[in-house]
Design a binder for these strands. Structure first.
Lengths: 180, 180
DNA sequence: GTCTATACAGTGATAGAC
DNA sequence: GTCTATCACTGTATAGAC
């Protein structure tokens, strides 16, 4: 809520945070209004499709962020270390949850199934390509990529469940070593 | 719903399935009524505390199941292979989601925070004890235990997200090899 | 464009008939 | 004990004033 909100894009960070903290069903329009500082009038002006369109916009932004900062560098440069740095920063060292992962498990999972699947498929594909470029057999690279992506998601679950963000950092260190 | 429902315990499996599929907020009393075949009268007769008491009962049953079939064997016999077999069966080879993990990420996470934390803490502790009994250094055993528990949870997220249950089986195979 | 009012459905929960 | 009817409330979404 730091910057004045004059269009959809300005509202997305606050929106994303509400969905992350409360899930899709739990993110009521009152919570959304409070978090963004926008009334229902403005919200429906920006997002005529209502809450579903808000969530879609948030997911699209997340996907774009990862595409630019994680997937593309992985595919092009094969830079796995940079991925771990980006991921650790993005998830705030385990204090932030992965909205896409949460949506995959939760209530409204079929509503966003296509987007969720694409996000994870792209992540695994890009990481497998990077590992293959570093000399692994294609099949082994793909297994390792699945292992690492699942490891990140599981570490987020565990860190949140134990209320111990440091568990995420430990997991990332292990995964980094395994990827090297 | 196979057996006639005459007390709380009979309703728990159907209840658990509803919470797993729709999350806590998404599991409305109408869904719960349809899944259990019970009217609101019966439900509130069995669970005077309403939905929250239903979820608590489900979580307690899950915890008891894992305590008996997973945690205790790990602590006593150190049988890691049996854990993987139990886990693979319980999560239906990746077609079933972990309710405790889902609650850790989702909306109503603080409501069940204590139970969620205990479930994962016991799992990690028991597994670490088993790995230590198999000769690992205590610190390494604990790291490996965290790695494996997180790996299971992450594999469930990934399998569900990709809509590819087989990804769970592949992950379990990798984790099993890593534990050996 | 943004707010205030409100419509309408659906929620969890309760009361009372049987 | 179980169902039906109903409660008060909150949800999303819309309409209309400004």
């Amino acid at each position: 809520m730091r910057k004045p909100i004059s269009d959809r894009a300005d509202a997305l960070p606050a929106l994303a945070e509400v969905f992350r903290q409360h899930g899709y069903e739990g993110a009521s329009l009152s919570l959304i209004g409070a978090a963004t500082g926008l009334g229902k009038g403005s919200l429906y002006n920006f997002f005529p499709g209502g809450k579903e369109e808000m969530a879609e916009a948030v997911l699209a932004e997340i996907e774009a962020w990862f595409e630019e900062r994680v997937f593309a560098p992985l595919r092009e440069g094969g830079d796995v270390t940079a991925m771990f740095a980006a991921v650790e920063a993005y998830f705030r060292s385990g204090r932030r949850v992965c909205l896409v992962g949460a949506l995959a498990l939760a209530d409204s999972r079929d509503r966003f199934a296509a987007r969720v699947r694409r996000y994870f498929a792209e992540w695994v594909d890009a990481l497998a390509a990077a590992l293959a470029a570093r000399g692994r057999e294609p099949a082994a690279a793909r297994e390792a990529a699945e292992d690492i992506v699942a490891g990140v998601q599981g570490a987020l679950v565990l860190a949140r469940a134990l209320d111990e963000p440091a568990a995420f950092g430990r997991a990332v260190a292990r995964l980094k070593a395994r990827a090297a």
